[in-house]
Structure formats: C-alpha cells, structure tokens
C-alpha cells in the first residue's frame, strides 16, 4: 500500500516499482461467534435485573428476571406448570399430527393428479391467508367449547402450510427421476414412497418449521379464549391478576418450547437429509 502511494508522488519511478496487488475481498462470509451471542444475551438479562433492582422499571409492569425465575420455580415445584404444559402439549400434539398427516396426504394428491391440483390450489390459496384463529368461533359451534375445537383450529393452521410445502416439494423432484422409475415399470405407490416423498422431504421439513410456529401461535390464542388449563390460560389469568412474574414465566416457557421444537426439526434435518 505504502509503495503504491509513493508511486503517485514519483510517476517516473512507477514503471519499475513492484507493487503488491491488493486483496479485494473473498465474498461475504458472516459467522456466528458463540461467545458474542452468550455475552450479549447475558448482558441484556443483567441490565434488566439492574434496572428493576434500582427502581428504573416498575416491577408491576416488568418483573425482575430473578422474580420470573422464582415464579417459574414455585410453579414447577407445585406441579401447576406441568398441568398447564401437559394440556398445551396434548393439544399441540394432536392438532399438529392431524394437520400434518392430512396436509401431506392432500399435498401428495395435488402433486400427483391434475384433478386435485386444479381443485386444491385455488382452495388452498383462498383459505391459507385467513388467520386460523378466526375459525375458532365457528369450530366451537361445530365441536363445542372443549378440546375438539382447539385441536381442530391448530390442525387447520398446520394443514395449509403443510399442503403447500408438500406439493411444492413434490414439484421440485426432478422429473427425470420419475421418468427413470417409470422406465423400469415401478408402480405408482412405490414411486410415491421412494421417489416423491424423499425428494419432497427438504421442503417438507422447512414447512414443519412454519407449521410448528403457526401451531404455537394458534394454541396460545385458542387457550386465551376459553380454556381452564394451558399456557395461554395461564397467561390470561396472570394478566388479569397483574401477576406479571407468572405471566413472564409463561412467556419463558413458550420460548423454551419453541426453541426445543426448532431443535427437534434441526435434528431431523441432519439425520434425514444426510444424502444432500
């Protein structure tokens, strides 16, 4: 660099001088540095704790992290947390499974047959943008205020993104692989199971991320509207009694739940997509 600058002042020397070609960059490659991530999260929590301890924040509006932790602990010890958690987990478990199974089946039909494609895609396009929680009142009329309507609303919120992920995954399977199977007279069922489904799996797993997030959202909303137990019910009850420490504990639980489900999907991606 310094030589290059020298050259500017002495143009006649420039022809002979050797200059190093400057490095111009190797493409942007941002990395995650774990230490920085941990430090930044810890400092946010520390600042929050200090702000409440020194009275900068009114604990009624935002309790200190230590109070949230102790609320979480006491709910854990009393078994109250587990009661809410198990109610929520069973709703999300049933709702997500039903929605996913139906979504994959319908998505495969759209991916395979013109009739279902012509019929299904406009229908999905019309219903997909509707926030599924809007269907809860209707589903309550159909299925009653109990578990059925909540599970059905979650299933509906999972069904549509799964359909879209499945058929676009099937569409992305190279046609040549299907033609190959057909050139060996492989029957349709085996093609669906051995070619289309594995080929659609990357798209399907990406869809699971979306459908898990959607199901969490609808779960909490549905439980806020009418449930005795469940994380959503816990949140609304704590809010009504201004127990913000319990409310925040519920939020922490939801965050942990979302992270765990995300980690499960990442694990599945690593295990099932080794061939990529």
């Amino acid at each position: 660099m310094s030589e290059a600058r020298l050259d500017k002042h002495a143009p006649e020397a420039a022809e002979q001088a050797e200059r190093q070609l400057p490095f111009r960059g190797g493409g942007f490659e941002p990395e995650t540095r774990t230490v920085i991530s941990v430090i930044s999260i810890l400092s946010v929590i520390a600042a929050w704790q200090l702000a409440t301890t020194y009275g900068l924040i009114n604990p009624i509006f935002l309790p200190a992290p230590s109070h949230v932790a102790s609320a979480l602990h006491s709910m854990l010890v009393s078994g109250e947390l587990w009661m809410h958690m198990s109610a929520s987990l069973s709703r999300i478990g049933y709702g997500w499974s039903i929605g996913t199974a139906a979504g994959i089946a319908f998505g495969m039909l759209i991916g395979l047959f013109s009739v279902f494609r012509s019929l299904g895609i406009p229908l999905v396009a019309a219903i997909y943008p509707v926030p599924k929680i809007a269907l809860l009142p209707l589903l309550i009329l159909w299925l009653g205020i109990g578990e059925g309507s909540k599970v059905a609303t979650i299933a509906a919120s999972v069904f549509f993104p799964t359909v879209i992920a499945t058929f676009s995954g099937v569409d992305s399977v190279p046609r040549n692989l299907i033609r190959m199977a057909q050139s060996f007279n492989v029957p349709l069922g085996r093609i669906a199971w051995n070619v289309l489904l594995p080929g659609a799996l990357p798209s399907l797993l990406a869809g699971f991320r979306i459908s898990v997030a959607a199901s969490l959202l609808v779960l909490v909303a549905a439980e806020m509207i009418g449930a005795e137990y469940g994380i959503g019910a816990l949140l609304i009850a704590a809010g009504n009694l201004m127990q913000t420490d319990r409310l925040m504990a519920g939020v922490v639980v939801l965050s942990a739940l979302g992270l765990t489900l995300g980690a499960v999907i990442s694990y599945l991606e690593r295990k099932l997509l080794v061939w990529r």
Partner: peptide, 12 residues
C-alpha cells in the same frame, strides 16, 4: 431399459 444422460440416481 434406459440409461440416462444425467444418471437419474436417487440421491437418498
């Protein structure tokens, strides 16, 4: 029986 230009192997 067919042999394909792009091999048409199932990657999984």
């Amino acid at each position: 029986t067919y042999v394909f230009q792009d091999f048409a192997l199932l990657p999984w």
